[in-house]
């Protein structure tokens, strides 16, 4: 069953074409990896999926569970079950992490027609989920991403993912800035959430993440397009030989 279908996506920013006819299909239960040199448009792709202002398609289309995503706002897409772990999580000064998490959690519950949790019940639930990601209470008392270290920010993204339990998650360089221990914790967090009904797209430069989060399909992205797809071995190949050979192959 396909969750996400991207067909021939073209997108420009400031009149500069960034996505140049990108296609990608993701089915239930799959884990995809997207690799590619800096500036190839990976983050742009993630913003486009999430419906960020200014990242509207010039051409092509995207469907999610057979629903056309293009007219939907970011919150509507989120409600459908699309989650983006940001490459650069945004600071919200003055907004307590716990309150923020409760707000997004209950807002999701409400959308799903499920019971919202009381403050106390939520705190209990949050503690459990946070513990699995080695996130301490102290961190949850701080403002959202404010003064968090690189690693803390990434863990906080996965914490949100765990609370929202999305249908498809796009993790944009979630591994960058993580030491090996943190990488393990984060990967385990992602793997624990994985089931036959949902899907994950990990955007990364490094094979080492893919040692923990095993991809079914690996895509190489360059200059706004996916130029090669393959199985997990493709990532190993890139790790060993770099992108240049694949890029040359194409041109």
């Amino acid at each position: 069953m396909p969750i996400l279908e991207i067909k021939n996506a073209e997108l420009s920013i400031d009149n500069k074409k960034i996505l140049k006819g990108l296609s990608l299909n993701v089915n239930e239960g799959e884990t995809h990896a997207i690799m590619g040199p800096n500036g190839s448009g990976k983050s742009t792709l993630s913003y486009m999926l999430a419906g960020r202002d200014g990242y509207e398609l010039d051409n092509g289309n995207i469907t999610f569970d057979n629903i056309d995503l293009t007219p939907l706002s970011p919150d509507e897409r989120s409600n459908l079950g699309l989650f983006l772990a940001f490459q650069y999580p945004v600071e919200l000064p003055g907004v307590s992490s716990t309150n923020f998490l409760r707000e997004i959690f209950n807002s999701r519950k409400k959308y799903l027609g499920e019971n919202e949790l009381s403050h106390l019940d939520f705190i209990k639930h949050l503690r459990k989920v946070a513990e699995n990601l080695s996130i301490k209470d102290e961190m949850l008392k701080r403002y959202v991403n404010f003064g968090f270290s690189g690693g803390e920010k990434k863990r906080f993204e996965i914490l949100q993912m765990a609370l929202l339990n999305p249908k498809i998650s796009v993790l944009d360089e979630t591994d960058s800035g993580l030491d090996v221990d943190a990488l393990k914790i984060v990967s385990e967090g992602v793997n624990n959430l994985k089931d036959k009904k949902n899907a994950v797209i990990v955007i990364t430069h490094y094979q080492r993440l893919l040692d923990y989060i095993k991809p079914d399909i690996v895509h190489i992205m360059s200059d706004g397009k996916i130029i090669k797809s393959g199985d997990a071995d493709l990532a190993l190949y890139v790790e060993k030989n770099g992108y240049s050979e694949i890029l040359n192959e194409k041109s």
């Binding site: 919150d75 989120s78 983006l84």
Partner: peptide
């Protein structure tokens, strides 16, 4: 955008950010 990506609508998101701004 960050708040809305998590499912908050424009008004919830604005209110959240502004309340943060006024926290002190």
């Amino acid at each position: 955008f960050y708040c809305m990506q998590r499912g908050l609508d424009t008004e919830q998101a604005t209110s959240m950010i502004v309340n943060g701004f006024c926290k002190e």
